[in-house]
Amino acid sequence: MSRTKPQPEGGQAPVVQRVRLRYAKRGPMRFTSHRDFARAFERAILRANVPIAYSQGFTPHPKVSYASAAPTGVASEAEYVEIGLRERADPRELVWALDAALSPGLDILEAVEATGGSLAERIDASAWRIELPGVTANAARHAVDVFLAATEVPVERLTKQGRRTLDARGPVVRLDAPQTSDATPSEVSGVPCAILDLVVRQVTPSVRPDDVLSGLRVAADLELPVPPRATRLAQGVLTPQGELVDPLAADRDAAVIGAPPP
C-alpha cells in the first residue's frame, strides 16, 4: 500500500499533478452538508489509494480544495473539487476509483488535469432547477413575473450570526417557469408540480434557491404546500448571452486526453 511509503526526510512529497473533478450529490445524499462530503471524500481518497499529497507541518492535511458547495438538502450535478497528487494518475482511473470508494449518490462524474488558473475564477454563476410539488405552473409563472418586475426583493435568512436581510432579486440573471416540462416530477403523480429554471450570479452573501423561493413568497405570496426540491445543474462563468461556461472546458482543451499512466 502506498499509504505506508515513507515520506522524504523533513517533509511531505511535493505536488506533481493537480486534478479537477466534477461530482454529483443525488437523491437522499443531497442531505450531506459540505463538511460531511469533505470527510467522506478524504476517506475515499484513502480507500481508493489515491496518491494524494499532504501539506507540511505537524498535522498534514490532504491537498484538497473545494469550489463553492451547494447547500445541505440541495442536490447537485455540478460540484467541483481540485486535488493535488504526489504521483501522477490517470484522471479516468481516478474517476472510477473514487466513485467506487464513495457511497452511491455521491458520484464522481469526470476528472481533468488542471492546466493553470483556479476553479474559483472559472465560476461566477450557478444554474438551478427547482421542483415545486403542489404548485401549478400558472401560479409559479405569475409569481415569477411579479418577482422579476421588482428591482429589489429583500428577504430574511437565519444565519449563525442571527437574522440577516439580503436582496434575492439582484443576483438573479434568469428565472423561468416553463408551462410544460419534460422533467418528471419527483412527487406522487397526479399532483401538479411546477418547475423553476434559475440562474443566479454568485455574490456575497450568496443568494441560494431558498432565498429566491422566499423572494417569491414575499413578492408574490407563493406558498409551498410541500418542501421544494432544488438541483444545481451547472456552474461556470456567465457569458453575455446568459450561458454558463463549463469550468473544466479550458483544462480539457489544453490537456493531452488520458495522461500517461503513472
Binding site: M1, S2, T4, K5, R47, A48, N49, V50, A89, E93, L94, W96, A97, A100, A101, P262
Partner: peptide, 13 residues
C-alpha cells in the same frame, strides 16, 4: 511484520 505493498496503484474496481 512490515506491511508488504501489495498494490501501489489506485484501487480501481
Amino acid at each position: 511484520l512490515p506491511l508488504t505493498p501489495v498494490n501501489t496503484g489506485l484501487r480501481v474496481p
